[in-house]
Design a protein around this nucleic acid. Sequence first.
DNA 1: TCTGGGGTCCTAGGACCC
DNA 2: TCTGGGGTCCTAGGACCC
Length: 422
Amino acid sequence: MYALIDGNNFYVSCERVFNPALNGKPVVVLSNNDGCVISRSNEAKALGIKMGEPAFQLRETFRKHGVKIFSTNFTLYGDMSRRMHSLLADFGEDIEIYSIDEAFLHLPDNLSKEDYLALGRKIYSAVLNGIGIPTGIGIAATKTLAKIANRIAKKEKEYGNVCVLDGENEITEALKKTPIEKVWGVGRKLSVMLKTHNVGTAYDFTKLPADWVRRKMTVTGLKMQRELLGYDEIDLDDIREPKKSIATTRTFGKTTSDYGLIETAISTFAVRCAEKLQKQNSIASFITVFLRTDKHREDEPQYGNAYTMALPVATSSELELVKHAVNALREIFREGYNYKRAGVIVTGISNKKEVQPDIFYDYDFEKHERISNAINEINAKYGRDTLRLAAISPSEKWRLQRNFLSPRYTTSWDEILKVKAK
DNA sequence: TCTGGGGTCCTAGGACCC
DNA sequence: TCTGGGGTCCTAGGACCC
């Protein structure tokens, strides 16, 4: 059996932990550049605010209903996530962390329904009391069914945030009231396709012939169907496993046609990729650089391009990645366009112990590693970018706009919550 | 003025091998 | 006239997730 635990409206809940005056009020968290809504309190959802809706279109709604607005504070959310997952780990050896606010916990197989329910409530209280985040908990035999249970736990008040799906009739009932587009793995395209074949619910989907599902939806669809029928099919990569691709990409606060500015941005993204690689002890063998203009500005000339190159030697060195990223950028940069978005992606990732020296390329892996380590140590002690490559600049114009940022309550001594005595 | 960021998996089809 | 068979590896692109 699996329990799927996820934080309710996670980013909003993180903000509320340190600012209880937000309870009961409409609250939203915005994406980078304060662009789109990416987390909403229940009160904000009730106002009709949609996931991903652009903030500028909502200004009137925000004003009229006094919606509390926050910029993303990933430092805070990431730290709260780490704390939540470590609380969950107390309830079982096997935990698969699926995202910043979700984890699957492996539970013993032969408990009674009452015992699963009691365990679910215990987990709920542990997280709420431990870090102040309310959760939804779904318990069932497969991950896909646990997702469905989780949705019911949150949606139907009488469940009190915990739903156990055990027993054939109960599972059938749950599948019948789950619209097909709410099934884990069915997105916009597939739900449209399935509806034209008269599949409206998860239950209808389980009744389709397996070979039809295989043909129309590949093995992914087949696994989904089997999961709904109670066969455990989906294995997740643990989030602590090394990543297979690493990206740093940004939408600029303002568009720019200035090559120098973009080179600085790309160099900074390359350094961030290097840091992420080093953190998981990996090296990358390919680098991709892309840039594009603002696709929403139909009145302006559009251009977008990407360039992928094999690195001469797999590496995690910021010096090497910046050098090659800039070379890649020169391949695709064109004068006369206003660029809005750019990024660096590294792939072909392996463990750093597997570095293959190239006798034709002058590269001293150990020397680069010593440099990286020295930079990391200094910055860990004195703050990010205290020591940095001249190619990057911490205060450039492409920087994010974050006008509604909350303090980093849990990770910065300067920003810790202050309690005043009267 | 103003529209996020970072991932995974799967398949088809081309290049290449013997 | 007639042009094999069986494989691997890689990449782009599409679909999905939070």
